[in-house]
């Protein structure tokens, strides 16, 4: 079990379709990140990404809350797109902003927690998401990796 899964389980309570959606969304986000970071220019990999998008967005939990979750996908993607140019900046404050925005995908976990358990549950998971994200993506000196 990854460090993320206990947080996702807390976010969804006993809702298995929601857990399936979050785990699939997690994999999908990392696949996108690899595609962009590696500067991929291959139709096969792009199409594979789109097929995975279709599978993700046909999951029952997404279908049930499609309107809210699709809006979240757009805002998360926008934040991630901003993080790309910010993290490449020469200005320290922009790199810091970018380093925060690149974890925008965690907002999906917060939104699912909010839908299923209200604001209190979203607050319960939010802090841990930040801590685990930081731990996994920074070196011992706190530099982004």
């Amino acid at each position: 079990m990854s460090d993320w899964e206990p947080i996702y389980r807390k976010a969804v309570g006993d809702n298995e379709p929601a857990l399936n959606f979050l785990l699939a969304f997690h994999r999908y986000c990392h696949e996108i990140d690899d595609f962009i970071d590696d500067g991929v220019r291959a139709p096969d990999k792009f199409i594979a990404l789109l097929v995975h998008a279709n599978v993700l967005y046909t999951l029952p939990f997404f279908a049930l809350h499609a309107r809210e979750l699709s809006a979240a996908v757009a805002t998360i993607t926008r934040a991630y797109a901003d993080s790309l140019w910010l993290t490449a900046s020469e200005e320290a404050w922009k790199r810091q902003m970018g380093d925060t925005l690149r974890f925008a995908g965690n907002d999906m976990v917060r939104l699912v927690a909010q839908i299923l358990g209200g604001y209190d549950r979203a607050r319960e998971v939010s802090g841990n998401l930040i801590l685990v994200a930081h731990e996994h993506h920074h070196d011992e000196q706190g530099n982004p990796i």
Binding site: L50, A53, R67, L69, S70, V73, A74
Partner: peptide, 9 residues
């Protein structure tokens, strides 16, 4: 990719 989510939502 955003267009995909809109089509499937």
């Amino acid at each position: 990719l955003v267009q995909a989510s809109e089509v499937y939502a």
